[in-house]
Design a protein around this nucleic acid. Structure first.
Lengths: 169, 169
DNA sequence: CACCGCATGTAACGTGTTACATGATTCA
DNA sequence: TGAATCATGTAACACGTTACATGCGGTG
């Protein structure tokens, strides 16, 4: 996934590694902080696969830059991925869900866990709101998505509470 | 994550590997199919860490079974994980979101992608409904969560459509 | 005889995380 | 002098996926 976002950023315009890291984190509103090494590993793999290519740009004072751009193959691969079905295979792999289920299976106190996780989601929500206020464009859209998800999770916790009794062994 | 669900299933009652696979897939309503090898690798690691222990149960006709149970340490570790904040660090890592953003960044046709992904979500939703009808207990709860998520994603696509013009470069 | 179900496992790979290494310049 | 910024990279680890290996017994 990371690699496709990197490719998308390169599709927008050519960039060098260090610049990509900032663009990436900026796009995600700081919700995905990258280790800079990861960028270079990713770029290395993309180059190996012929999806991107670099032009070295020497600088006077600062270290040389490798400016990366999408190749034609890369451009096609990106288009293929974006138009691929996202909901294809249904995958339920979420920490919140699994924590509640785990509590139910292990016979712990479900109600108190629900209240605790509601609190946690509440804090996440206020943080998202804070981020959202200072964002725009694609970043704002991503944050709106995250907010909609948290709202859905809050509703889910309500459901869990209503059915807690049935879950107890 | 897989390992905690495995531990939760063992907290419910001791089980052997092959049985765990079925219990796991059943719990997830078939939305997470495991390669049987993965179960054994996971059990091996959990044993290494002292979180579970096995009792070998010989059988007359069929191969011996290794019946696994949570140790006291394992039980504590599971409790620690379930009561850990789920919303702690906000993570936006979703294919659907990234596909739309990638399309915007690379200058592709956002509207047609949105319609395509709406269609994809619609099919996912009908599949979820189908699964939901034959489920109960924890599995039904998980599927309801997935349904709430898909609904949130549908709303998000509406948002994307409304803002598609701002996203275009 | 070939395949399926039972039951256990190993090996290779893909993706993301963390820590560490290098070297120059600029700023407190 | 020590830390931060610019710029590139390597190595080790965690987790999940896929494919493959082994062996027995029952069924078509």
């Amino acid at each position: 996934m990371l690699k496709y976002l990197v490719m998308a950023l390169l599709a927008e315009r050519p960039r060098y590694g260090y610049e990509l890291k900032r663009a990436f984190e900026d796009l995600l509103g700081g919700t995905w902080i990258l280790n800079i090494g990861q960028i270079y590993v990713t770029l290395g793999k993309l180059e190996e696969d012929g999806l991107i290519e670099a032009e070295v740009v020497p600088q006077q004072l600062l270290p040389d830059r490798k400016v990366w751009a999408l190749t034609e193959i890369g451009s096609k691969e990106l288009a293929r991925w974006t138009t691929d079905d996202a909901g294809q295979a249904i995958k339920i792999r979420d920490e919140l869900y699994f924590k509640v289920i785990a509590q139910a299976l292990s016979g712990g106190d479900i109600e108190s866990l629900i209240w605790q996780q509601r609190d946690s989601l509440g804090r996440a929500m206020s943080e998202l709101g804070r981020l959202r206020r200072t964002s725009e464009g694609a970043t704002a859209l991503l944050l709106d998505g995250a907010i909609l998800r948290v709202e859905a999770d809050m509703k889910w916790l309500d459901l869990c509470e209503a059915r807690a009794k049935e879950l107890r062994p």
